[in-house]
């Protein structure tokens, strides 16, 4: 972990603990009033799934911060964050697909969800009112936490944290769609519930697929991807151009391990003077921690090898 990120990482860890706390209160509140509503079920599962990114982030931050390279893991644990990102992405995409299937099945079968009444403090109340209250409550924490996460995700170049910020955005959008579904049920639109659930599911799948594309790219040593999607990262592209200019004729390959970039310069000898990898960073020096390593692979002299082997 680069030293200049420690402060931002501490804040992010602190924020994620708050995220877990507030998300848990939402899950409990929603779980108590689920009923037969497909919208409520979908929103509740999405809220529960929303725990995956912060949990993975906290696990990854712990491993990344504490674990040292060992004989079994000589390159350290920079990629733990990427692994967490992959797990979160798979969970998002898979559950989104299941929920979409449920919602479309309910729509096709024209299922009419029943929302009964319950007794609260001696008063009979339609469960739908409590569902609406739970949905309204579920809008607030993710809206605030998601906004606080975005600048930290950018500062740390943390895709897992960024996915969590997206997840929080999806969660409050889900709350808004869920309100439509429950109110729709109340006014007698039986289809509103399943329709809202289907829209929410599509949003979950969209987030999941975007995250999965980025996570997979990192796992197969793809070029560094942007924080917010599967497009190539702009700062990594600028770095590639800068190194190509400095070492003409070379082939430059970049890959990402977690938040760090590794550079291989093929078919070129290293510069004679010893240089810190960060000296190659083209933009704002505050972000130069992104470069972990620059390796040079000189041109292979095939004739020389052949001669040596012949002897």
């Amino acid at each position: 972990m680069p030293a200049e990120l420690e402060d931002a990482m501490r804040k992010a860890v602190h924020l994620e603990y708050w995220n877990l706390f507030w998300s848990s209160t939402i899950i409990i509140a929603m779980g108590l009033v689920l009923g037969q509503s497909q919208t409520m079920k979908t929103a509740w599962i999405e809220d529960t799934l929303g725990l995956v990114p912060p949990v993975m982030f906290l696990l990854a931050a712990r491993v990344e911060g504490k674990a040292r390279p060992s004989k079994r893991f000589p390159f350290g644990f920079h990629r733990v964050n990427g692994l967490g990102f992959f797990v979160a992405a798979v969970a998002l995409a898979a559950v989104g697909a299941i929920l979409l299937y449920d919602a479309v099945s309910a729509l096709v079968a024209a299922e009419h969800p029943s929302v009964a009444s319950i007794f609260v403090f001696g008063h009979e109340i339609w469960l739908g009112w409590l569902m609406i209250a739970a949905q309204l409550y579920s809008l607030v924490p993710p809206m605030i936490i998601g906004r606080k996460e975005l600048p930290l995700a950018k500062a740390l170049n943390d895709k897992l944290l960024h996915t969590d910020a997206l997840m929080n955005k999806a969660n409050w959008l889900t709350g808004a769609a869920g309100l439509f579904g429950v109110v729709g049920l109340g006014v007698g639109w039986w289809w509103a519930d399943s329709l809202a659930a289907a829209v929410i599911s599509l949003d979950i799948i969209n987030d999941g697929i975007k995250a999965l594309r980025s996570a997979t790219a990192e796992l197969v040593d793809g070029a560094p991807r942007a924080l917010s999607g599967p497009d190539l990262s702009e700062d990594a592209q600028a770095l590639c151009d800068r190194i190509r200019t400095e070492f003409p004729g070379s082939t430059v390959r970049l890959r990402e391990t977690g938040r760090l970039i590794h550079v291989e310069v093929h078919d070129h000898h290293p510069p004679e003077e010893s240089r810190h990898p960060r000296s190659y960073w083209p933009g704002d020096s505050d972000r130069s921690w992104r470069i972990a390593q620059v390796s040079f692979i000189p041109p292979t002299d095939d004739d020389h090898c052949a001669t040596k082997q012949g002897k």
Partner: peptide, 18 residues
């Protein structure tokens, strides 16, 4: 037992049942 989705009717029967 009532028909699914007829929530106002369901509430009325629930009230009578209680």
């Amino acid at each position: 037992a009532m028909r699914n989705g007829e929530n106002r009717w369901i509430m009325k029967v629930e009230r009578a049942s209680r």
